[in-house]
């Protein structure tokens, strides 16, 4: 009996954790259903990006051995999921402001579940975005030129990177406390981060200082990984000598690991201390 006790306690707390995580996730799913602008933004904005970039720039930017449409898709995927991760930041700041976090913190629920539910919400939004973008991409001529397994790996990598970023954003949202500030800050940080990368133009076309930034930019590694895994890198295309560009998948995996290892515990610790002012 005594040997079973800790195990029972463990399975009870695991069940509790799963229950609480699910309840918190369900709350965010209902929100996606009830607040149409999230869904509109999640579906229409990626379609708009795919169409704008492929039709506006396709004639201007020349990708040897391939088409701009093939080149740009990984960039649009990365940009969209990265921005999709910011919902967690503004949602946590909003919940804090509205006193909902105070309510949750006085309940006997596991402290991580609000964050788990929130980041799961982002994951779902991003999954919907990915499906919409890939469908639109297919229509305008984008093709997966690798194996299905590699394509799945590409999607998984994009979603996982954004999921890890959601934890970072949740932490920032709880620290900054203002939904308006978090929206502006994420815009100011994420826009340059996604544009000063290889997402929309090959990085070797950029002026030297920007090129160096773009080569080390983690978003570039993400884009490069997706491009390689979807088979959208044309034969003989020049790749930067920088290690992170030579080993993009490893770089992205390391980035995901670093974000999760630091920000999952940090966010949970933060959550246990915060309260509406």
């Amino acid at each position: 009996m005594t040997a079973d006790a800790p195990r029972q306690q463990y399975s009870a707390s695991l069940a509790t954790w799963l229950n609480d995580g699910w309840i918190a996730t369900r709350r965010n799913l209902i929100k996606i259903k009830r607040v149409p602008d999230i869904l509109v933004f999640t579906t229409l904005q990626p379609i708009m990006f795919v169409l704008l970039f492929t039709y506006v720039y396709a004639g201007v930017i020349d990708i040897p051995g391939s088409t701009y449409t093939e080149f740009i898709m990984a960039g649009i995927f990365a940009q969209t999921v990265v921005f999709g991760s910011t919902y967690s930041g503004s949602a946590m700041a909003n919940d804090l402001k509205d006193g909902i976090i105070d309510r949750f913190r006085t309940l006997p629920m596991s402290p991580s579940s609000v964050l788990v539910g929130r980041t799961n919400g982002d994951l779902l939004i991003n999954t919907i975005s990915m499906i919409v973008m890939m469908t639109t991409g297919f229509i305008v001529g984008w093709r997966i030129r690798s194996s299905p397994l590699e394509a799945i790996a590409a999607v998984a990598l994009l979603l996982l990177f954004a999921y890890a970023l959601s934890w970072v954003m949740a932490f920032i949202g709880m620290s900054v406390r203002s939904p308006e500030v978090i929206n502006n800050v994420s815009f100011l940080i994420l826009f340059p981060l996604t544009f000063l990368s290889n997402a929309f133009v090959p990085s070797d076309t950029l002026p030297t200082p920007l090129r160096i930034f773009a080569e080390y930019n983690p978003v570039s590694a993400l884009v490069q990984s997706a491009r390689e895994l979807f088979g959208n890198v044309p034969e003989g295309a020049p790749t930067s000598d920088v290690w992170t560009q030579q080993n993009p998948v490893l770089t992205v995996l390391a980035g995901i690991a670093i974000m999760l290892v630091i920000f999952v515990p940090a966010s949970i610790r933060k959550f246990r201390q915060i309260s509406t002012r």
Binding site: R27, I30, K31, R34, V35, D98, G99, I100, D102, R103, T106, T276
Partner: peptide, 13 residues
Amino acid sequence: GVSGQYAAVDENL
């Protein structure tokens, strides 16, 4: 049981 200064209810629910 706690009821706060302003209603901490989820508006979307």
